[in-house]
Amino acid sequence: MSSSAGMGGDAPDLVCQLDCAQGMVDALTSDAVVEISEHGVVLIVEESGCLQAKVYLKRELFLVYEYTAEGRPRFGLSLGLFVDCLNTFSTPGHAPVIEIRYPGSDMQLLLKTVDSPDACIYAEIRTRIPDTISWDYNFQSTGNVHATFTIRSAVLKEAVDDLEWPGSSIQIVLQPDPPSVILRGEGHGDLQVEFPYYANTDLLIAFQCDHRVSYRYKYKFLRATTSHIPNSVLKDNRGSKVTIGRGGMLKIQHLVSVKRAGGQHSHGDTSGGIQQLSRIAYIEFFVKPEEDEIPVNDT
């Protein structure tokens, strides 16, 4: 601006007045949409209208879950603040019980520690009216059966990492004969990763497909579905479920163990198995296919 003034033009390149700085702050803060229901809490993050991530925290994950609302309240929340906040609450070696409440008097999300009557940390995070979800992620199967496979999470991540080299666009093919999954990248070069179902039962845990299905997906979205999966998922290596739905909608589901620190709240061992199952959170990614692709044999 100073240089343009020096050039002789008195007018700066831009003058604007803002009557609501808060609106600007809101717009610049990346948000997640939180939906609460009698079944639990769902966090939804969307990017570029092409990728949607959902985290399901079932009510069984919580020590206490009291839900009285009608309908399913939704609110927007800065994910970064929420994560920072949860980090502020726990110190190394001490994981307090945190109570989360919604809504506060001004529709805030309220958090506080409740395990000690004489010392507490609390936080109030401002929420917003959520943006309407711009694109419908309704997932429908392509035919009579889902075209789906379950693969070790670490293997999927490795395959997607390898496909970085050709880059840009990745074709995913599921074919029933011979039953196999093919990930193919064509860009700076060609790279094809093939998982034959019968060759190694350790790689593909499950496979279901009654006709050939093929779609292309942007590499950066595909990578987003595996690049940030928690280390515990890779360590447990339970398996990630990949499904291609109607119109090529890709759904990738990871299971995350939500372990209790030191088992301090475990309720006996008779229900150990059920406890273990209910300590799972789901992360789902939905990826839209590239539009120019003509589906092959997709009915």
Partner: peptide, 27 residues
């Protein structure tokens, strides 16, 4: 800040000087 308030409270600490009893049911 405009987006978040974080606080912490320590209760029933030892008091020197002027003290008062907390109102009942303030818990």
């Amino acid at each position: 800040t405009s987006l978040i308030t974080v606080g912490s409270e320590f209760r029933r600490l030892r008091v020197l000087g002027v003290r008062a009893d907390p109102p009942a049911s303030d818990g």
